[in-house]
Computed example of a mutant assay.
Amino acid sequence: MNPRSTRIARLVPMAAAIGALAVLSTACASPSQEVAQASQVSSQQSKYKGTELGIPTPIPPVTLTDFNGKPYDLKANAAGKLTLVYFGYTHCPDECPTTMADLASALRLIPADTRAKVQVVFVTTDPDRDTGPVMKAWLGKFDPSFIGLTGTVAQVDNAAKLAATPVEPPKKNPDGSVEVDHGTQVNAFGTDGLAHVVWLSGVAPKDIAHDITLLS
């Protein structure tokens, strides 16, 4: 059967008082967006098209496994680059592929020298099914430069918490379907190692490209 995905979103309390912004939706196909009013800069004040965080989120200092089976230090590999991190899964029927397609489109809109300073990292929230080859083939459909990361459920959960992104472990239902809950924001970690901006579901590629130019 097809897996079922639900979206969870809320402000995630962090030990260092980091606020997170995410999208709330009850079904993957038709997200209803409720933007939290805490821990963000008002759209009138912000220069970004995405959601500017009042309290930037540090990039998680974690080591996961890339889709080639090699250890991947997220913080170390982000040094000197604008790193766009998304937590999702390849069996997602709409939100995850749409986001990857939007990021790929946005990157095609920016100059080559700016593009060279940007990397996209996809962290699976469904590690049992998202093996390295599965992620590599799936991400390659959008952009072969996209990086896929995996780990144990506990490792992914820890990375997501540090990135202020809500996720829940996959749940298998009696009918064989799988529920995979995760926040839908793209975290844009700048060269300073902080995410000042997140893009929620539905932000247009041209607006993402606008922000990338400012952040790079």
Rank of each mutant, 00 (worst) to 15 (best):
S46P: 10
A163Y: 06
I208W: 02
A38D: 14
I59Q: 04
N187W: 01
K141Y: 14
P93W: 03
V120I: 04
A9P: 05
T83Q: 04
Q185W: 01
L11T: 08
S43L: 11
K70G: 02
G148F: 02
S30M: 09
T124Q: 10
P127Y: 10
P111V: 09
V153E: 15
K49E: 08
T63E: 12
K49I: 03
R129M: 00
L149S: 03
T184G: 11
D102K: 12
E52Y: 01
P169E: 03
P71A: 01
V12Y: 09
I18W: 13
T125N: 13
G190Q: 14
L64V: 00
A104I: 00
A106D: 09
A188F: 05
N77C: 08
P31I: 04
H91F: 14
E95A: 15
A22H: 13
Y48W: 10
C96D: 06
E34A: 04
A159L: 02
A17Q: 10
F189A: 10
A164E: 06
E52C: 06
L200F: 02
Q37A: 07
Y72R: 01
D130R: 07
S216N: 12
S43N: 10
P133V: 01
Y48C: 13
R7D: 01
V35E: 12
Q45F: 12
A188Q: 04
L24G: 09
D157W: 05
I8D: 00
V134T: 05
V197L: 09
D130K: 05
R115C: 03
V121G: 07
E52S: 10
N68H: 13
A38F: 11
S25Q: 11
R7W: 08
L74R: 06
D102I: 00
Q33Y: 11
K171H: 07
P31R: 10
T114E: 13
P13T: 07
T6C: 07
N158D: 15
D175K: 08
P127E: 11
P56Q: 12
G148N: 07
G190H: 07
L214Y: 05
R115Q: 15
